[in-house]
Simulated scan of single mutants.
Amino acid sequence: MSDLIWLSDEQIAKLAPFFPKSHGKPRVDDRRVLSGIIFFNRNGLRWRDAPGAYGRHITLYSRWKRWSEKGIFARMMAGLAVEHGEKGAVMIDATYLKAHRTATSMAAKRGSGRLIGRPKAGMNTKLHAICDSIGRPLNLFVTAGQVSDYIGFRALLSSIPNVDWLPGDRGYVVDWFRDAFTYEGIRACIPSRKQRNTPVKYDKRRNKRRNRIEIMFGKLKDWRRVATRYDRYSKIFLSAIALAATVIYCL
């Protein structure tokens, strides 16, 4: 099939340092299995519908589940992102991702801990992201849809590199948030809300470049498994997002 996805030898070489060591029996071909996992996440298929060229679907599922639970795909994205060495600016933002009804049961016992909320827009998950000046994601974090942007950002705070500027949207304009970076020499570039009595000065030209993080969100949502959440467990869903970001921006 001409529309199948296959990783090149160069791409596998980039990812190989993050692979866990195999114990005992050697693993099935990494290139074939990872290519199948990417094809599955890109197109939002059921595992049993994976093309036969990638081998047994149970092998793809087993590798995906084990490596997701170990955080391998998240480490791939974070490790490759560090190599870019951003020093100019990083951007912050958050977006909503729709949760399919198969991903959750809102019952208290079974639905807890899945990071799926029910705000006005329906059941969804919120993705918080930090990206560099050209829109490449540096770190990602997921929360329930109704959780404040500040809570998600606190989880990403330690991963912000030493840069000059931090553009953001109006949701991050509160004083304590802007002052938190003063002692590190990072200047926040965030516009004021309309109801604020004292407008905040900011660099309008630099803030316009924040559209790159919106473009990044759009590219991630081109992957069916990211745009609609089918996974019950948040760690596996975050792995799907990290894998998409790795393929789009790091390979």
Rank of each mutant, 00 (worst) to 15 (best):
N197P: 10
R110F: 06
F153P: 03
R193D: 00
D149Y: 00
R224D: 06
W176K: 04
E83A: 14
A240W: 07
K14S: 13
R114W: 07
G168V: 04
G85A: 15
W223D: 00
D30Y: 14
L80V: 05
H128P: 00
A180W: 04
W176R: 03
Q195W: 09
A13K: 01
T182Y: 10
P20N: 09
P167M: 15
G36C: 14
P20Y: 15
T143L: 06
A81S: 01
H57E: 11
I160W: 08
T125A: 01
S22Q: 14
T198N: 06
V200E: 07
P191L: 02
F237A: 02
N211F: 03
I92L: 09
N139Y: 11
L243Q: 08
W47C: 05
A53R: 15
D149W: 11
A108N: 04
H84D: 15
R56A: 12
A16P: 10
A50D: 12
I215V: 06
T228S: 03
G24S: 00
F19S: 00
W223Q: 01
F141V: 11
D149E: 12
V163G: 12
S22L: 01
K208N: 13
N162W: 00
I236C: 01
G122W: 08
R27D: 05
I248D: 04
G171R: 03
S148F: 06
A50K: 15
G55A: 05
T182G: 06
A227N: 06
T104F: 13
L115I: 15
I241R: 10
P199V: 03
Y96W: 02
G52H: 15
A244T: 09
G52M: 14
Y61L: 12
A13L: 05
I72W: 02
G152F: 02
I38E: 02
K221D: 01
T59Y: 11
S158L: 00
D169P: 12
R205Y: 14
L156Q: 03
G135S: 14
K87P: 04
Y202H: 04
F237G: 09
F177V: 09
P199F: 06
S8N: 14
A227T: 07
G36L: 13
A244I: 07
G113Q: 13
P191A: 11
D3Y: 13
G55E: 10
F73G: 08
G122T: 10
L34W: 01
R63E: 14
K65H: 15
